[in-house]
Nucleic acid binder design. Sequence first.
DNA 1: TTGTAGGCGTTATCAG
DNA 2: CTGATAACGCCTACAA
Lengths: 336, 336
Amino acid sequence: MKDVAEHAGVTLSTVSYVLNDSGPVSESRRARILDAIRVLKYTPNESARRLRKKAASTIGLVLPDLTNQFFALVAEGVELAAAEGEALVMLCAPEAINRPIQHYTRLLRGQSLDGIIYLPGGAGMALSLSLELAEAGPVVMVDERVRGFDVPTVVADSRSGAREVATHVLAQGHRRLAIIGGPQALWTSEQRLSGYREAIAAHGLHPDAVPVLEGNHREGSGAAIAARLLAAPPDERPTALLCANDLMAFGVLDYCQSAGLRVPQDVSVTGFDDIPVARLTSPGLTTVRQPAHAMGYEAAKLLFELIRTPASAPPPQPPVFTTEVQVRGSVGPAPG
Amino acid sequence: MKDVAEHAGVTLSTVSYVLNDSGPVSESRRARILDAIRVLKYTPNESARRLRKKAASTIGLVLPDLTNQFFALVAEGVELAAAEGEALVMLCAPEAINRPIQHYTRLLRGQSLDGIIYLPGGAGMALSLSLELAEAGPVVMVDERVRGFDVPTVVADSRSGAREVATHVLAQGHRRLAIIGGPQALWTSEQRLSGYREAIAAHGLHPDAVPVLEGNHREGSGAAIAARLLAAPPDERPTALLCANDLMAFGVLDYCQSAGLRVPQDVSVTGFDDIPVARLTSPGLTTVRQPAHAMGYEAAKLLFELIRTPASAPPPQPPVFTTEVQVRGSVGPAPG
DNA sequence: TTGTAGGCGTTATCAG
DNA sequence: CTGATAACGCCTACAA
């Protein structure tokens, strides 16, 4: 920068002015400076810049893992919004590195990030951790809520999505259902469960008649639970399995195929999320669409708004996205 | 930090010494300082730190998009290696934000990153762009090569993988093949194509007898090309489609299903990458496994090594991963 | 073993 | 409109 100043025959301050246009500069000088910058291929040193201002033009993105396409889509949404705000994204995937979130809270705190997008999902959703994260900057949550952690949050209406998909299944005549839920501690798990139960109650079934098994949102757990559930004789085992996310539903599909069970003739299956590959299984997976990309995008937008908002002003109001059942082949009429 | 020093009754340098253990400090003082740090919940300001040293403990990761699970897996591998090296990862997904890489080269240059992992894939694989990226720090490439851009590169042996899967298809008696390739400009596209052709030549077929259509590595292009290819009458159209990645193969599968073509009875399909969901289509996709996670991990390790290596020393030797055909249901004997 | 002082590249506050 | 100058928070010779 000093070089630029010399090359243009001005002082550092003037250069700084044109860089941030934070001061009045005569056209002739401005042109000379811009020129010098190009000639010398000068790039401002961001580290110095953040030291001085307290902003980093960088936001943190904390999510469980990237291999679940749902999360990947959220990440792309965040990335897009960040790009529009000329910011960069720090990726933190605690489960991918098999360490507690603390690993990141420690690293992130010093970065003077502008803010953080937090999508809890695995084991690390405890309140204390959230608070710790919050010390690294303003936080916006996506897809999940943490009780007692009161930050702007972008979610979809899981509950009514679950209700609708369960209603669809019940309308096909199924009466012996089973639910493969997500980790109990998660808000979404609870929401989806209530949704399922509302539908079940509305059809006059006793909630206790529907077993709920806890999965971990990954394929393997779907397959394992299906194996347990479907081992019973045909006239006792469930005729429909409601899964709290698509990955577990894939696991179920996979198990059924290897066990020689036909979907949907022998057993119907539903998922949740509607990740792109859900269309591609065969039969296609009946599931509940959540606008993952839009959710990530809005969350990041919200974060930027939050950053700009003076602390006194009312916090921006986050939207609640609607969900939508996608009917495909994996649900059919109840057998018998 | 000043507060810490006061609280512990020492000077700033002493605190700095214990922080980086870069100087001898008496046990008693060290303990007092550590204590003060804990009490005050002090976190070093990374911005200041990088300004002083020239390292950021941060690496950049540039890849086309995250929704392709292959890339997501690479990203997780990188993330893991970064965590082991106590570094953070800056995520850059140019296609997700629908802008040229330049958007990032500009942003990255000022960050004084320790280095960059670069996985070209979409439109942005030109040499000039790579060089521009290299100005932001040492670069390691994964999965692709760019001619004339000579940096350490981690790849898998696409060519022999392609050869083997084609051989498998030919061994099933298929003679009317078609290839759905990736973007021509990519090194992997070229490699896979040569692999396919080697196998084809080895079976005495004339290479020109096998049409090659160029896709863009996404589902949609697979479906579109399949539609064109399979419109011909049954005894003229190809009996097997070799796709340069799994996503395009999914597109083909999808098209076949909607067009009422049975896989593999009417047409056989192969993919490339073996992303986790490839097991879940039905029939399962016969494809070529690339160790995506390991490749990302090794690339990041390599980058760290490169950073440590004095410029004079010989650059570390990158491994070439082997590929492996995964035989599943999407390939069957040739009809007739 | 500990303290002092200079500077990393910017921005912001002043006075000209 | 422009130019000096003091921080920002940390590291590292060097001196004590």
